[in-house]
Amino acid sequence: MKLKLVLLSLVFTITTVLTGCESILVLDPKGPQAETTANVIWISIITMSFVVITVMVLLIIVLLRYRASKQPDDYEPPHIEGNPIVEGIIVGVPILIVAFLSVVSVQSLYKVEATPEGYEDQEPLTIYASSSNWKWHFSYPEQDIETVNYVFIPTDRAVEFKLYSYGPITSFWIPQLAGQKYAMADMVTTINLAAEAPGDYMGRNANFSGEGFAQMKFNVTALSPDEFDTWVEEIKSTAKPLTEEKFNELLEPGHLGQLTFTGTHLGFSPPPEMKMEDMNMEDMEDMENMEDMH
């Protein structure tokens, strides 16, 4: 019996901690994509608590009622093969639950993979985020600037991160803004997100990539669009240009602090070949421009 008490109290502690603690990053979303995933998580937690509680209640009832010490000595348990109705229920109810969660899963998937809701008619800000051992490079092709280990984005605007890697597979993750996506050396992947509150957010590589993995974090700052433009202008007037030589130096394994440059590496070290369906006309033009620059 002790077991059940321990388990129940643990489950309750966990649920109360989860509900009471709004500061848990994934459940404290600051943008539409992370909000979708947080909602899915809550829906699944509630549905699944129902399952866990049902199983536990049945288990406790069975253990209390049918333990040997409660039965007369001559009690002979009956032989029961099965019962079509009972077995129908234990198949049917899980199927219904799974069907419900499947609908939620598929709908939310299409939502988080697309441009954030409410920003569809807007031109997204494209930022190329590439990883190397053990840092993140952020290239802004429109603004023609590049940062290392930190990224500024405007609030209330769709942002499209194009991800790739100069080494092992990494996973780009900003828990409060959107879920993860891999950055790989032979394919460009995309994350769509938007920040709806100004602030600093933790971003990191979530996929193990060798010795310096634990420290492979970056800072995301969401600013109002005006402040963002001011920041871009400031960078353009103060930062040094990024040369190919300098970029190759940055790629060397190790840790760097936060760095800022004008110009991007996209011209001399372009992203890996992208799948055609992932590219829209804008990208094509970008690429052509880059080749011109080259």
């Binding site: 995933t37 699944s44 288990l59 993860q180």
Partner: peptide
């Protein structure tokens, strides 16, 4: 039985791909 049920239902949570983007590798 109860512990594996918890493991199983968290498995269903992980199977919801959109939410998995947040659980993955954590």
């Amino acid at each position: 039985i109860p512990l594996f049920t918890i493991g199983g239902v968290t498995g269903v949570m992980l199977a919801m791909a959109s939410a998995d983007y947040q659980y993955h590798n954590t």
